[in-house]
């Protein structure tokens, strides 16, 4: 088990407190104090499960702008394209599908980057990440794909996550 570190506690505290303020939406001093105490307790107990890497990447302006770019431009475009594709398949009778599970290599090293990419793949209709494995220092995802257009790992990976991975690589290594 990892030891609890101060930056991890601080970041978890900030996130919990911001969430409390958003949910209650009242700036009474009593509410704020109660929220601060509760989020500090939560942060002390749970920080070591959540944060294992440098937690202050968010305050690096270059990374922050790449995150904004990813969340506002790159990911929504992919999301809309995939949504229109799956909606077309649904409206035209659901028979023109060609499902399969492919194993694709992933070039990201950091934990945050890998989980962000896996969640982005699952959020895109048409692809679901089923499992993550590691063989010889190389991470692989098993992805269920509704329309298998390429059977080899690299070509399939390029089609499924090419743009997404390029966007995430600017934020996490």
């Amino acid at each position: 088990m990892q030891k609890t570190k101060l930056p991890a506690v601080l970041t978890t505290f900030i996130v919990c407190f911001a969430f409390w303020i958003i949910i209650t939406w009242s700036f009474d001093i009593q509410e704020l104090a109660g929220g601060a105490v509760v989020s500090l307790a939560v942060a002390l107990f749970s920080a070591r499960f959540f944060i294992h890497e440098n937690a202050f990447w968010f305050f690096n302006p270059a990374k922050f702008f790449s995150l904004l770019l990813y969340c506002i431009v790159i990911f929504p475009i992919e999301l809309i394209k995939a949504n229109v594709d799956v909606a077309k398949r649904c409206f035209t009778g659901c028979r023109n599908v060609n499902p399969g599970i492919v194993k694709i290599p992933v070039g990201l090293k950091s934990e945050y980057g890998q989980s962000m990419l896996a969640n982005s793949i699952t959020l895109t209709p048409g692809t679901i990440t089923m499992e993550v494995t590691e063989e010889n220092e190389q991470t692989y995802y098993y992805v269920h794909w509704i329309d298998v257009a390429a059977e080899s790992g690299e070509a399939a990976g390029e089609k499924i996550k090419g743009t997404l991975e390029k966007g995430i690589r600017r934020i996490f290594k």
Partner: peptide
Amino acid sequence: FALAGTIGILKMPDTYCRMQASTCVATL
């Protein structure tokens, strides 16, 4: 899009394709 996803959940051929269609409801 929610209508498309619902039709997909009802008419897709197998479990995994149904889950793919249900993501359509959940996202857009």
